[in-house]
Every structure is written in structure tokens, then in C-alpha cells.
């Protein structure tokens, strides 16, 4: 076969530039830490990476939502517990009032009952990050008016805490304290009635009030357990989201990121190959018959 200098030069140059190209590629993979530098390097891998990124964003958002839900539910729970404790105290007072004959004692009980009534109204009016906690979606100046009427709405505030999974993160004062006409008596009406009975010394009435108080506490207890159940769901969703996030990140790294050990090896190999090409070139190219003719 006839081999010409032109062809030899051309081939050498091409091999050299192809070697240098591979060297450069190995180097930029290592420097960027990425296996896929442009989508066309691996279209399938890119789709996978893009989809994992979108999932990651979605899970991160769910984790944020769950975080928000968690802090809301905690505050709701704390407020409801305080309310429950106050009602327990009212119950104790009512039990005492049913047996006392002393007017001044009854007056003292009445004063405490009225203070608790205001305290409960204060709890119902609690605000969280600038908005009322127990008013549904509405933002009235007072969630519960002085006469015990509910001024919020029935809005259920929900948070997305997982794929297709939402959880309700509020409870209205209406639901917790049975304010509207419904199954359970209005807690403020019960307290007002109790105060009136204390004024009148109506011991028989106080006994009946004890029954109403039982109902009111039952309603509050149910609300507390609803909130508790929601808090549990949120807690497990948070755990799940953080586990999923870890998995997603690991998977994305698998698809997108370069394996350092392998990349370093590749770079070394390419470097050696490039140097070998250069050295072969320096030996083969300068040779010609000219060097040997005298």
C-alpha cells in the first residue's frame, strides 16, 4: 500500500485532536462533577434527572407545607389544651357551687367563672402570624363577640403534605366551643347561665349546668383529638418527605453526577493516551528517506 505524507500528517492530526477532545471532556466532567454536561450527552438520563428534580421540588414544597401545618397544629393544640384546663376548673367550681350556701362564696365563684369566660374568649381570638387561628378563613376583628356569637366562617384550611394527601390544619371556634345552634351547647351561653344561677342561688340549676358542661367538654375533647390525629399525620408525612427527599437526591446524583474515582481514572488514562500519541508523533513524523541518504 502506498502511504503518503499528506495522509500520515492528516491522520496524526485527527487522532491528536480526538485524543485532546476526550481529555478535555474527561477534565470538564471532573471539574464540574457532572456526568451529563448537556442533555444530548445522555437524553434518557436527562429526562430522568429533570423528572427527579421536579419531584424533589415537589417534595421540598410538601416538607415546607408540613412544617407550616406542624407549627399551626401545635399552637391550636396548645390553645385547646388551655381551654380544656379552664373548663375543667369551671367544672370543679360548679361541683363546689352545687353544695355551697354561702352568698359571698358564690359571688367569688361567679367572678372566677366570668374571668374564665373572658379567658376562653381570648383563646378563641388567638392570632397566629397576623391572622386569627379559630376563625376559619375569615379575618374578623373579634372571632367571638362579647355576647358569644361566632363571627368567623366555616372555612377549612388545608395543607398538601404528600402526593394527593391533604390535611386540615385549623379548627374553628364554632366547632371547638359549639357556638352556633347545633348539637352541643354554646360554652359562653353555658357560662353565662352558670353565672346567672350563682346570682340566683339556683342549686338545682347548677346541677343541670354540670350536665351542659360535660357536653361542652366532650365537644372540645373531640376537637382536640381531631387536631391530635392531624398532627400525627403531619408528623409521619414530614418523616416520609425527608426520607423520600434523601432517596431522590441519591438517585439524582446517581444519574447526574460523575463517579469521582472513575472520572479521575479516566482523566489519567486520557492523559497517558494523549502523551503517548504526542510521543508517537514526535518519533514517526520527522522520519524520511532524507535522513538516511548521503
Amino acid at each position: 500500500m502506498r502511504v503518503t505524507n499528506e495522509q500520515m500528517l492528516g491522520n496524526t492530526l485527527r487522532r491528536l485532536s480526538s485524543r485532546l477532545g476526550q481529555y478535555e471532556r474527561a477534565q470538564s466532567q471532573l471539574a464540574s462533577g457532572r456526568r451529563i454536561l448537556t442533555p444530548s450527552d445522555d437524553p434518557g438520563g436527562t429526562v430522568r434527572a429533570l423528572s427527579l428534580r421536579a419531584d424533589e421540588r415537589s417534595r421540598e414544597q410538601e416538607a415546607r407545607n408540613a412544617g407550616d401545618a406542624h407549627s399551626r397544629l401545635q399552637i391550636v393544640d396548645a390553645q385547646l389544651s388551655a381551654a380544656s384546663e379552664r373548663l375543667q376548673r369551671v367544672n370543679d367550681l360548679a361541683v363546689g357551687a352545687a353544695s355551697t350556701k354561702n352568698d359571698s362564696e358564690r359571688a367569688a365563684i361567679k367572678a372566677e367563672v366570668l374571668a374564665i369566660r373572658e379567658e376562653l374568649r381570648g383563646i378563641a381570638n388567638t392570632r397566629y402570624r397576623g391572622a386569627p387561628l379559630f376563625a376559619g378563613m375569615a379575618d374578623p376583628a373579634e372571632v367571638v363577640a362579647a355576647d358569644g356569637t361566632y363571627q368567623g366562617d366555616a372555612g377549612a384550611i388545608e395543607r398538601r403534605i404528600g402526593e394527593g394527601e391533604t390535611v386540615r390544619v385549623n379548627i374553628t371556634a364554632d366547632e371547638a366551643f359549639g357556638l352556633s345552634a347545633g348539637g352541643s351547647p354554646n360554652v359562653f351561653a353555658v357560662l353565662d347561665q352558670f353565672a346567672a344561677q350563682l346570682d340566683a342561688g339556683d342549686t338545682a340549676g347548677v346541677a343541670a349546668t354540670l350536665g351542659s358542661l360535660e357536653q361542652v367538654r366532650g365537644t372540645l375533647g373531640r376537637s382536640q383529638s381531631v387536631v391530635g390525629a392531624a398532627a400525627n399525620r403531619v408528623e409521619s408525612a414530614r418523616q416520609r418527605a425527608s426520607d423520600t427527599l434523601l432517596n431522590l437526591r441519591a438517585e439524582r446524583a446517581e444519574v447526574e453526577d460523575v463517579d469521582m474515582a472513575e472520572a479521575i481514572m479516566t482523566l489519567q488514562t486520557q492523559q497517558v493516551a494523549y502523551e503517548a500519541t504526542l510521543s508517537a508523533m514526535s518519533r514517526a513524523l520527522p522520519q524520511s528517506l532524507v535522513n538516511f541518504l548521503r
Binding site: R2, N5, E6, Q7, V290, L293
Partner: peptide, 19 residues
């Protein structure tokens, strides 16, 4: 590259040959 290599085998100058 293959085609022009094959052609340059025929058409291009080989210095050794010319010497």
C-alpha cells in the same frame, strides 16, 4: 476521512518516493 485517505494514497505526494 476514509475516502480522502484512500484518495490521498493515490494522488498525494510521497516524499520517500520522490527521493
Amino acid at each position: 476521512v476514509a475516502a480522502s485517505g484512500a484518495r490521498s494514497n493515490v494522488t498525494a505526494v510521497s516524499i520517500d518516493e520522490e527521493l
